[in-house]
Design a protein around this nucleic acid. Structure first.
Lengths: 344, 344
DNA sequence: CACAGGGGTGGTAGCGCGATCAATGGAGTG
DNA sequence: CACTCCATTGATCGCGCTACCACCCCTGTG
């Protein structure tokens, strides 16, 4: 009897004249099943418009089909790219994505993550930087016995739990490019303290200057928070310097865009008066004028790969257990925001 | 006995020496419960670290705590803003957000949505434009008996299912502003056919010109797809015209940013050689230089309100059954991309 | 012809929780 | 002091599905 709503497996079994276990076998594509029986059950299923109840299934299987994304990243484009990459990997599977932003800096952050993970009993979770760099969350996942993958700018965990890029080296390459053009006074807009990516990018910057024998005054390093607003303040501080830097490396595109904004607001030309290099290669880098020379961070591929790692032991049986890569090289993209300094 | 993992309600009941129904009462804050019993059970719960199983709960309640977001919007910033607004409304509730992008234009789009809704049995779904403008999806939700709210640029449904803005009028206001500054050759970069928002914005544009007695040559209308790339192509087409338009209204900020990009690429100054007006007031509008005069579309408020509508009959008991507004006025934001035309 | 073997199927017991309804015990009343 | 009443509590069933194990029947073999 159809009580309130959807037909259940019992309805299908009764109408098809088989046991519900047989229906279950049809749903789960059990190999040992008579073809006729299968056809008959499938017939009834489609007539009734029967759809299995995912909650009941999850309860019985003691496992659900939800992948979580935990992030506290201020960059919208970045988060969307990650979602896009993950969803690409999850396409045509029965997995769904559940998104959970958390409040960085909140004292209850770790508690919040714990509550979320304990309540939802997800199949797996993925962590975006910067929260992914927090060793506590990895610890938490291990304690709770939940699959996880972290994204980051340096390897922090075993390869099956980590998808990383090599920010340090590629920043060195970018800054070397500036140096080779003749720049000597190069400013840095650093990312927030405590972010691994910020430290890596800063280290890459310092390595380049050191390699060229350039002594870096502290004043040429300004702190930002990976947001446009903090980037603007940092850029203004650097551009107030006298003499001014002839080039600025911003630790992400948001802050690079802010640097461009600050420069143009005070009537400077880019790249004639100031060369700018960003990091991430998000949409804004190519949308603004002049388009930014920046480091392409393969975030979508990384996210796709991370999601596939999460799903690996689910689809492992199918034989497509290809080892997903863990290290994704970033590459320098030359666009129009860099030129030799005016007085070289 | 703790078999594989988490303690269950039975463990709590056994250890606390009460029935599991009593534990259930504690969890669900039933009022008729002896204080001592409650304290004892809560004690055991915290000692065991017991967390109720959401799947089992969902099965027994025949209802879960998941809100879906279905979208096919190409603008990342927009989608993130919507997620932010929804999550704000869902903060400190037990509801979680599950995100489902769909492939616009795919022939199986409606089937995909149906499968998703039937399988997940969500508490409610929210639709973003443009898919929200598709009457079929609303029909589908009604057929499946699932709560839904649509976001859009014009009222298309009963107010409890709709959160809308008034794009038409505010665009008229924006274009009137251009006209009052002396602009006569004003170009339009329209949104894609079939998008309600695109039609509304275009109508607002045409109303303003008509009101001023300006005859609009077809050539001054270029088609875009709400993406940067199509905006760039459209802007190039308009700027190739002779005589050129002195101002361009782009139907969203992405395309407005592309217009600025196109203008600057050919050495034009903005706003001296070309005034630009956008729509949405997403981050890029204030990040580029010059910052865009644009229409602020209160997307975050709309999304928050939409989510609250979805949750209304869940929290309705608490007395805070405030009627959520359905219409959100957009407002014109004056920034630096608009000036009088050169030869006035 | 009796029996072993195996593909195909059903019965039934959970998974963890909520809900109905009856039962219990103590306080209040005549 | 017996009885009623109300505040608490528990036994049991059901939510929809999967899993373990037993069972059936048909074929093949000694």
């Amino acid at each position: 009897m159809e009580r309130t709503g959807k037909p259940t497996i019992n309805d299908v079994a009764r109408i098809a004249g088989v046991s519900k276990k047989t229906v279950s076998r049809v749903i789960n594509r059990s190999p040992l099943l008579n073809g006729d029986t299968r056809a008959k059950v499938e017939q009834v299923i489609s007539e009734l418009g029967y759809v299995p109840n995912v909650q009941a299934r999850a309860l019985a299987l003691r496992r659900n089909f939800l992948i979580g994304l935990i992030h506290d990243n201020p960059n919208a484009q970045m988060v969307m790219n990650v979602q896009a990459g993950m969803l690409e990997a999850m396409r045509d599977t029965e997995f769904e994505l559940i998104v959970r932003p958390i409040d960085r800096g909140s004292s209850t952050m770790l508690e919040d993550v714990r509550n979320f993970l304990e309540r939802q009993r997800l199949y797996g979770v993925m962590f975006l930087p910067p929260v992914s760099e927090n060793e506590m969350v990895a610890e938490l996942c291990r304690e709770l016995g939940i699959r996880y993958v972290r994204m980051g700018s340096a390897t922090l965990d075993a390869s099956e739990h980590m998808v990383a890029s090599n920010d340090c080296d590629v920043v060195t390459e970018a800054v070397n490019h500036l140096i080779s053009l003749g720049h000597r006074r190069i400013g840095l807009i650093a990312g927030p303290h405590g972010f691994r990516s910020a430290r890596e990018r800063r280290k890459g910057f310092e390595n380049a200057l050191e390699g060229a024998g350039i002594k870096l005054p502290r004043s040429l390093i300004a702190d930002g928070n990976y947001t446009f607003e903090t980037g603007l303040a940092a850029a203004d501080r650097l551009l107030d310097l006298s003499p001014r830097p002839t080039a600025i490396f911003a630790s992400n595109d948001e802050m690079a865009a802010a640097t461009l904004h600050a420069a143009r607001r005070r009537g400077m030309s880019v790249p004639e008066d100031l060369s700018i290099v960003g990091f991430d290669d998000t949409a804004i880098a190519s949308h603004i004028w002049p388009p930014l020379t920046t480091v392409h961070w393969p975030i979508i591929s990384m996210a796709r790969s991370a999601a596939l790692k999460l799903l690996a032991d689910f689809f492992g049986d199918d034989g497509n257990a290809v080892e997903e890569p863990s290290l994704f090289p970033s590459t320098l993209i030359h666009r129009a925001s860099v030129a030799p300094p005016r007085e070289g």
